[in-house]
Amino acid sequence: MLIDTNKCVACANCVPVCPMGAIYVDPDIGRARINQDECVECGTCFRGMSQEHLNPTMVRTVRKLARLFRFRFEPEPDVCPTAAFVMNELEMPRLVRQVFSDPVVEHKSTGIKGRGTEEVKTNDVNPRVGVGEVGYTIEFGRPGVGVRFRDIQEMTIELARMGVKFEAKNPITHLMTDESTGQIRADILGEKILSAIVEIKTTLDQVEAVLGTVEEVNRRIDTVTAVGISTRCDDGGEETRLAQVLEDLGYGAERAKTNMGLGRLTNAGAA
């Protein structure tokens, strides 16, 4: 992401908008700047802000006058008055930042689709996690912190040592050079992204070990994690086994995503 310095009027509206805190007003040039190492190419500044197309010279003059008299204009907080953001074309390895951070942009060419898979959202038509099995989505970096691939790799190496199975269609699995060791492509290890999800599956008796490992590795890597843990309900729609394990381990699950089982195989030939 770039800021067109000919257009920017240093209004600073965009500064709090950035989820990574990567935008600041540079007093030396009197324009906003992006810290490119911290920017994850999420597109929030470019797409999330509304744009006016005002004349920059006119806006700068008005702002100078207002400042002279210490007037505070109270503009809408989510507007870039001069449409100064420029979404530039990215190439690998930097492109992975956008792939994992911008939920709107699609990159068919990379073969990487979004941050995760359908998980158990489509478990009723696309069985991934069965009764007695446990699926995990281990998310890194969100909210508001971000993560580098080298930190994700710390976790995948540790999980691979435990012998867990990585979800084949998950984007992080795609980026591994060796699934058996959890190694990720070397050229992207320094890239920062807003969030990524590692997906694995185990049996119920491994829950304690997996969650313990995630917590232990998280202490070593400078980011936040969020674990989603899923299973299939029984024929009566009840789920007590995993809930009991979580309770015994002291995890209070307040929130859940529930697949209501309304999906059917409707494509010609899918049944």
Binding site: V120, L211, G228, N259
Partner: peptide, 11 residues
């Protein structure tokens, strides 16, 4: 219910 995914919150 068919399947459920619990959130364990942020660490």
């Amino acid at each position: 219910r068919h399947s459920v995914e619990y959130s364990l919150g942020f660490t």
